[in-house]
Amino acid sequence: MGAESAAGASRSAVVDAPDEDRLLTVRDLDAGYGDLQILAGVDLDVLDGEYVVVVGPNGAGKSTVMKSVFGLTTQMGGAVRFADSDITGLAPEEIIHEGIGYVPQSDNVFSSLTVRENLEMGAYILDEVPEDALSAVFERFPVLEERQGQRAGTMSGGQQQMLAMGRALMLDPDLLLLDEPSAGLAPDLVDEMFDRIDDVVAAGTAVLMVEQNATEALSRCDRGYVLANGENRYADTGDRLLSDPQVRQEFLGG
């Protein structure tokens, strides 16, 4: 890695890995909304089973990266590959068949549907509700099993966040995209949320996560990307990003 000093974080966003280990490969991505370009030449890799975090200041384009992977933005250039297929420019309803799950930052549950119905909707593209996936979700988030008949909109923010994650896990995706899962949660719930994400990673699902809570997220992940103004700034293991004085000063508040 082209580090500037022994302890400095790498600026190279591209990971060297054999093709069979590659899950998500984003190259030179230009994307935005309508005519408004947000991302310029973004590179990003997620390997099989890897836990990758994207951090950066507000307006850096973190969520836009996530949405672009899931086909929710206007793609203006570059390429997105997932496993063996080119998913550049595909619509979300096609991408979900490839094995990517997406949890939006807000409004991420169907509030008038029950908890169980929300989970069933997560498996809409299957002919039948996968019982094993459902029990796996219930096992991971016991509160969802206890409250399966409750309307999602009447649950607390933390429970809704777990439901949103559970819904995305119903298809047992290879890659889970999480957009600021800790947003709006009480501080004691934030740690619990991160623990649950660790569990998901431990079970073999790769996670690509955007997070405001940068220090905590970087300390738990395998690798992190620092984005600013829609461009790559740093990319390295979480620990090295956290220990780089320049990264700390510029992006992590000292």
Partner: peptide, 20 residues
């Protein structure tokens, strides 16, 4: 259920894979 989901939140229905 998909109809109710869609009347709840159309964008979420789309990212869930419901053919809107």
């Amino acid at each position: 259920k998909a109809m109710r989901a869609m009347s709840d939140n159309r964008d979420l229905a789309r990212v869930t894979g419901i053919p809107t």
